[in-house]
Simulated assay, not measured.
Amino acid sequence: MKYRVLGKTGYKVSEVSFGAWAIGGTWGSVDDNTSMKALEKALEVGINFFDTADVYGDGRSERLLSKLSKSTKEKFYIATKAGRRLNPHTAEGYTKENIENFIDRSLKNLDVEKIDLLQLHCPPTEVYDNEELFYGMDEIVKKGKIAYYGVSVETVDEALKAITYPNVSTVQIIYNMFRHKPNEVFFKKAKENNVGIIVRVPLASGLLTGKMTKDTTFEDDDHRKFNRKGEAFDRGETFSGVDFELGLKAVEELSKIKPEGYTMAQFALKWILMEDAVSCTIPGGKTPEQVMQNAASSDMPDLSAEQMEAVKNIYDKYIKDSVHHLW
């Protein structure tokens, strides 16, 4: 496993880290015992950064990470998120008081005195103009409840606005073979501002694993069934906003240029890691086997310029027109 610095935090994090949404919920049925084995395997293969949120299973994945920390002496970092507990989820709800209340709840779930990294959880676009909130985040840091803070964003424009605040340490954003736009302007600006980039949805909700077909079915509580048109939250979080059948066609083309010895998922993860502005990517892992496979991509050979160009050509042909302008 290779490690990179996570922006202003200074944390050296595994470039393939762990996204804990799937072990919390809305990805079909999960078993906590299997989830714990996946988390333990993550530590074993060198993963030291875990991304979660207070709404994943209503704190379920936070509590699993607390259990993990009690079971080991190994040091690892936990990033959680706050804001999506607001009901309704509106810009007006993003006050220092509300966010601090959510943080207090996460501190209990995680059973820690200080959170390593707190991220605002895909707030409405207007929130990025709320200077008072960001000054409030600075105050929460001074209180010792959080070490650093960042934002999880939906769009490149939100990311660019977020990093104008000097103490935003990280930005979490969707970037994958189906979502190229962050690489146009944002990555360069983030590097200039020493902002860590956490890449989520690296496998486009599983589409880029190459294991799905048009006959693949999903459980009723799986967002890949109920959120394809953005019924529950931003459509871009599900299959990166790509039409399922169109995505399958693009994956078929990508599989033809996949390097020998890689799984399709490893090819997709390595493609992300070819960008040096990226601090880490956070694929989910429901099982120890998935975690091992994901982690192995860190030590696989770099992709060639020709392979990178071929991925871009497939994106331009199949995907760009339907997603590039939206996020």
Rank of each mutant, 00 (worst) to 15 (best):
Y128P: 02
Y128E: 07
Y128C: 02
D129R: 08
N130K: 14
N130A: 11
E131Y: 13
E131W: 10
E131I: 15
E132G: 11
L133F: 04
F134Q: 05
F134G: 03
Y135D: 13
G136C: 04
M137W: 05
D138Y: 00
E139K: 13
K142A: 15
K143R: 15
G144E: 11
G144M: 07
K145L: 13
I146V: 12
A147D: 03
A147L: 08
Y148N: 02
Y149V: 00
G150I: 06
G150F: 07
V151L: 13
V151W: 05
V153M: 05
V153I: 15
V153Y: 10
E154H: 11
E154C: 05
T155Q: 00
T155C: 04
T155L: 05
V156I: 15
V156M: 08
V156A: 12
D157H: 04
D157G: 09
A159Q: 04
A159H: 05
A159G: 12
L160Y: 13
K161P: 03
A162I: 12
A162P: 08
T164S: 09
Y165H: 15
Y165W: 09
Y165E: 02
P166M: 01
N167L: 12
N167G: 01
N167A: 03
V168S: 02
V168W: 00
S169W: 02
T170C: 03
V171W: 03
V171I: 15
V171L: 06
V171M: 12
Q172M: 09
